[in-house]
């Protein structure tokens, strides 16, 4: 009953079940890391004495850019939600849309690549930045990231850059 006292966190969620495949969306998945890669990365980090960081991206799906045009009925509570002919066009992905996961991953992919990361051939959820002396590794599990690297300062800088 305690929950009722304070305001509950609320979020606008789209009704993704009304979307049609190939018309409103194409892909619906976002890469996840295999457990074996997590273990290999842990083993490598421990052996090299690197420190490990875990990051969770808040409201990850709200960052994605939409490729398709998506229109949505006005949410209840909006000042004009009673007029039946009005719809709104979405600029960014929101929770509930079918294409939110790939949209988010594409955004993260671009963000990491502009920071100089390359995607691993062995697994598409693994990103590596390498120069002569330092190495930075990011493992992506939808909106959870594991970050490790040979240089503490670079890891700290990356955490700031990603924000």
């Amino acid at each position: 009953m305690e929950q009722l006292k304070g305001l509950k966190p609320t979020q606008l969620v789209a009704q993704g079940f009304s979307q049609k495949f190939r018309i409103d969306y194409k892909e619906t998945f976002s890469p996840v890391a295999k457990i074996i890669i997590v273990c290999v990365l842990l083993s490598v980090a421990v052996n090299q004495g690197w420190s490990l960081y875990q990051m969770d991206v808040r409201n990850a799906f709200l960052h994605g850019e939409l490729e398709e045009e998506v229109f949505m009925k006005l949410p209840p509570g909006h000042s004009q939600s009673h007029s039946p002919n009005l719809v709104c066009k979405l600029h960014k992905s929101i929770y509930g849309l079918k294409q939110s996961p790939p949209a988010w991953h594409a955004k993260l992919n671009v963000a990491l690549q502009t920071l100089g990361f390359t995607r691993s051939n062995a697994n598409s959820s693994l990103f590596i930045q390498q120069n002569f002396t330092n190495k930075l590794i990011v493992l992506v599990y939808i909106d959870d990231l594991i970050i490790t690297g040979s240089n503490e300062n670079f890891v700290a800088k990356l955490k700031v850059d990603l924000q």
């Binding site: 290999v40 490598v44 691993s120 051939n121 062995a122 693994l126 390498q130």
Partner: peptide, 12 residues
Amino acid sequence: IWAKNLLADLGF
């Protein structure tokens, strides 16, 4: 073979 490639990607 896959694990070897993965390690090579990680720079080892």
